[in-house]
Amino acid sequence: MRRLATLTAVAWSYVKVSLALRFGFFMSLGITLLNTWILVNLWGAIRQNSDATQAAFTAGELATYIAVAQVVSLARMSHANRQLFYKAMGSVDSGEIAMDLVRPIDNQVLRYAQWLGVFAVDTLMVALPTWLVFRLTGVIGDPHSGVQALLFVLSVALGWLVAAGFHYLMAALTIVVTQSPGINMFRVAVQELLSGGLVPLTLLPAWLGALALVFPFHAMVSSPTLIYIGRLEGLDALAALGVQAAWGVGLIVAGRILWLRLVRRVLVQGG
């Protein structure tokens, strides 16, 4: 109970921190809208000249997939979220991790709670407005049913859990690999491609699409987006949620093991 109160308090603090970064949110919203518009039009043009893409998706499905994937993906990587993520990754380099360690709070709970607060604000301030703009302009269709919409929301929440778990692993790794920018470049490259955020995984070369399913990234973006457009329904959708939950829990366990193994190697230089 006390842990829940602490978690809520940390998340609420980061809601406030996120709301203090108003300019960042306007920038995030603007960039998300622009990115989404560019990608939707780019993929529309690609589809017109690609038989394989025409066979895989209708024009409406593809536009909805691309736009919803951007909404889902960028809800986790807005300006505020990026800052928090970089801060977490840079905390070993900067020595800020010392302040985390002198508080009576589990490091994993602390990080997840911070990301939860930022995610909540990102969803309200960036994701929902973006979805609304593209919904009202007719680019995005609705989920097929109320149940499908509910499954989508659950899937986004589980996708966040997977993303938080992956980010925590990356942040913990900076204890031994002190070059956090290098880790982050690797993360961006792999995560963007293999999450299905830029391109539906079924349109990747077969070997790459198969590889993507081995990693947790598809659980962050592809799964909720496929549920939204109705490509995953009924038992398939429930199975996808199960896979997401398994990744979410697995990454929590992996993060905990990694942290406990590496925390003894934390070096905080200087005063």
């Binding site: 406030k16 921190v17 203090a20 020595g95 800020e96 010392a98 302040m99």
Partner: peptide
């Protein structure tokens, strides 16, 4: 703890 170079406070709040 008070480390002169680190902060307990939240910079934007």
């Amino acid at each position: 703890v008070l480390f002169g170079q680190r902060s307990h406070l939240l910079w934007d709040l």
